[in-house]
Design a protein around this nucleic acid. Structure first.
Lengths: 213, 213
DNA sequence: CCTACCGATCGGTAGG
DNA sequence: CCTACCGATCGGTAGG
């Protein structure tokens, strides 16, 4: 990281060099602007997921897309709002992936298993950008925290339905059950190391624990 | 937080004012030095637990004990090493508390239940300083990360023994089982809100899920 | 234990 | 989209 900053004497023009030249007086086509904006969202997602909000600077994000930090502010309003945008998109993408995974299943236990395996795969995919951002909003201002918590709660409501449908002993608290399962799956990356079990196998093992025998 | 910094025009002499005056030429008694050092460790533990490593500045810690940030460096070597010290002490204290909780139990399930309830109480105690620091070493240099992970692994080995002793279906992976239980208990503060169940009741509910019926 | 400061870095802006 | 900069803050140090 320090080395990357040291050798940054070269102009960060790599991204625009990859793009076909465009006459300077022609207005930028709408697609190019949104494509650059998309690059920024992708770079921010990867860095926030890997290092967290506080440890990611706008200059880091700019470097990834071939811009200086200040130049990002033509596309974003603030670092905080950028994080909220990235967070919302990541959860929406995760929800879609889980929805597709449970669609073919009808048995309640099969549906919960399919959703758990899908969430395990999302959280452990090294190229996924949903990973550990789900938690740790503490570094953002409280106003944004409530926004983020609302989005996360809406995402987790998916599991609310799935847990409601499974048969469980009467003395098991379904809210604790659901929160326990989600906490577990969301924090797999805290101890998972590639090379052993696959994410799908881990999801299956977790379901063994959570399914009464 | 901003308000506290704003009104800091007053000299931060509160701590030394509470202490009885000492003749300026007398050598400082050894106990006073270690007491001040202890105050720093306590303040750092509370702030690291509440805000995390990165969001806690040495000036914040100094303010809590009535010193300026730079003055801390008479007692500490660096912020990083201060964190390692605080972390080690917190885990040692937690291990002692859990050891005391399981001592009266002989039945393997009772021992695991007692340990889980004790860990839930530690993680949810608002005055405890063990809370969420167990994870999130990402902001520290890798050399210290391995130190911290070693300490944490030694702490969690306590649960290794407990899980080894319980009867479980042959197809349940005990490593996944142990890591799942620990992940769960260590992240209770992510969703727990005071006023509902007690930490002990939550520990009991979690054990219901993890105990095969 | 403070004063006074170092160099680095931060999010963000003006002005072109 | 860059240059050049703002004010704030950071961990840490010298020198008394």
């Amino acid at each position: 990281m320090a080395a990357a900053r040291k050798k940054a004497g070269k102009k960060p023009a790599a991204a625009s060099a990859r793009r076909p030249a465009r006459a300077q007086d022609a207005p930028p086509p709408c697609e190019e602007i949104s494509s650059r904006h998309q690059d920024i969202l992708d770079a921010a997602a990867a860095l926030f997921a890997a290092r967290g909000y506080q440890a990611t600077s706008v200059r880091d994000i700019g470097e990834r897309v071939g811009l200086l930090g200040g130049s990002l502010y033509h596309y974003i309003k603030s670092k905080e709002i950028l994080f909220v945008t990235v967070h919302d998109r990541a959860l929406a993408s995760a929800a879609a992936r889980i929805g597709a995974a449970i669609a073919p299943c009808t048995d309640p236990w099969e549906r919960l298993r399919a959703a758990s395996v899908a969430l395990a795969e999302i959280q452990l995919d090294p190229f996924s950008t949903t990973t550990p951002m789900m938690n740790d909003f503490r570094l953002l201002p409280p106003s944004l925290q409530t926004r983020l918590i609302e989005t996360r709660d809406r995402f987790e409501a998916l599991f609310d339905t799935l847990v409601r449908d499974i048969p469980l002993p009467a003395d098991v608290d379904r809210k604790i059950y659901r929160l326990s399962l989600l906490t577990l799956l969301n924090n797999l990356s805290g101890w998972y190391r590639p090379g052993g079990m696959t994410p799908a196998q881990i999801g299956d093992e977790v379901m063994k624990i959570f399914r009464p025998r």
